[in-house]
Structure formats: C-alpha cells, structure tokens
Write a protein that binds this DNA or RNA. Structure first.
Lengths: 144, 144
DNA sequence: AGTATATATATTAGATAGATAGAGAACAAG
DNA sequence: CTTGTTCTCTATCTATCTAATATATATACT
C-alpha cells in the first residue's frame, strides 16, 4: 500500500519547480542533487509529466524545465493519479468488471470509501506545499 | 499504492468466519472455494492472523478455524495494519528516522494526513461488513 | 565547432508478490 | 490403535515490478 518512488519523487520534483516558478528553467542535475536522487531516474519520471502538459522543457545550454501551469492550479491528486495507476486501493474500485463479485462485494464498498477519503486529502496544490515548505524551513533553519 | 492480496484475502477470510460466528469451525477448503483462492495460499495468510489471536484452530476431522473474537470487536484497520506493514503511504510517516529530511519535508506532512484519513475510514468492524454483505445479497439474490 | 543540456532506448540487479508442493503433526472416528 | 482428515511448517518457484544505470542521440546556445 506504499506509494512508489515514482509518485513521491514526481511530486517533489514538481514542488521544486513550483518553488522556482517565474525563476526560469531548472536543470535536472540541480533538482536531482536537491532530492538526493540520480538524474537518470528523474529523466524517466519526468516523461509522463511532460506528456501530460505539466512541464515545458528547453534544450541546450541554460536549458532546463519549467512548470507549465501555475502552482496553485496543480493538485497532488492529479499528480499521483498520473504517476500511480489511479488513487484506488484495489483495481475493482475503478474497473468493477475485473471481478464478477463486484456488485455484491462488501469489501469493495469499503475499499472504495477508503480510496475516496485518500483522494479528498490529496486535493492540495503545489502552491500549498510550497508555502508549507517555507514555513517548515523557517522553523528549522539549520537543515538544508 | 494497491493493497496486497494478502490483506484483501485476509479481510475476506475473516469476514467469512465472522459470518459463520457461532457456527462451529470452518475449514480452509470451504473458505478457499468461496473466495476462489487456493487453500495453500490461505494457509500462509492465516498464520499471522492466528499468531495475533484473531483465530483459533482445531486439527483433525471436523476441525477447522474459528474467529476468536466477536465480529463487532475486530476492525479492518487492525487487520490491514497487521497484514500490510502499517496503514501508511510512506515509511517515514511511521518511522521519521528513515529519512533525514523528515522534520522539514512538506510532502511528509501531506502523506501523513492522507494515511490518517485512510485509517479513519478503516474503522469498520467485521460485524459491519457482515451486515453489508447480507444487505447486498438480498439486493442481488441471483449472484452466489 | 564545441559544449551543455535534454531525450530516447536498453539493460540489469534485486526485491517482492503470489502461488505451489510436500512432509509432518494432531486428533476424532471407527 | 489404526485410519483418514485437517491443520502446520518449511521449502521452492516464477513472473513481475522497482529502482537504477548506461549508452547513444538530438537540440541549441556561444
């Protein structure tokens, strides 16, 4: 039931870019250093985010990546839905036909409710996260 | 972010036994047939449930397994916590020390809130699920 | 031209999930 | 006291996925 690093790194990747919004393109090398992750791995994670229109990229020297939408208009729910396969605990919540028992399955009802509760909590924007980050860094100034 | 079959089957296994509460021991063969799962696999899943005291077993002919606690006193939250490794989306929610950034990590705050929302929704008892099952079966009598 | 950066594709080592198999131990019935 | 039923324990297997690395190519600035 754990999140994959894919959606965790992806969220933090977008958060870094949100915090640098209006600051020009950011390079993956720099972001990778901040996240403590390899550039190569971020290169993979960024692909679906670009395809989905969250990120614009510029090649060549002084190139990099830019958040394509205002941070206040991107929610974590969207990001996780994209990078994970939907925000549901079991497949049958999204696709009831994967199991013949779906219509009478009492546990499906439960997993659905839990999944919806998760999704509701994820309606937080990148701007919210950025503000949270500022606050936490002010509170613990010794940490990088 | 999907649940493992371990916790899904485990929950349904206990639900079957809850529905048969006061009905004597149930055999894994019968339960396996109902769940559409191999006996051998259920044998593994039942081990931690027995160790944790949810189930008592009787060997020999006419043996089987019995729910050791009243269905109204067993929540899905407990079951999933036992069979999954905790109801948290990331390890650092339960064990902040796994990551040095925990104190200032804005995403950790979020994943924690989401995890807690999940857990809250899982405070449903086996008795609740059993009642739900009855209701659904009354509503769709054609299905087994 | 040369360099910095992004993009694309392939590969891989390891972990985990999901499941199966077989021998052994307890116990009730006859 | 033997036989058959059922649970119990340990071992093993395979496919899939995760996380990461490597290599080669395309683009664009200076």
């Amino acid at each position: 039931m754990k999140l994959s690093t894919r959606s965790r790194y992806g969220t933090r990747l977008l958060l870094e870019m949100a915090r640098n919004y209006n600051g020009g393109p950011m390079q993956l090398g720099e972001i990778a250093k901040r996240l403590g992750v390899s550039v190569k791995y971020l290169e993979q994670i960024i692909i679906p985010l670009k395809k989905a229109g969250y990120i614009d990229s510029v090649r060549g020297p002084k190139g990099g990546h830019i958040l394509a939408r205002p941070p206040a208009e991107v929610t974590v729910a969207e990001i996780v839905t994209l990078l994970e396969d939907g925000v549901t605990l079991v497949e049958c919540v999204e696709y009831p036909s994967v199991c013949g028992r779906s219509p009478i399955c009492p546990t499906r009802v439960l997993w659905k409710a839990v999944s919806e509760a998760m999704l509701a909590q994820m309606h937080v924007t990148l701007a919210d996260l950025a503000a949270q980050a500022e606050a936490l860094e002010k509170q613990f100034p010794q940490l990088p």
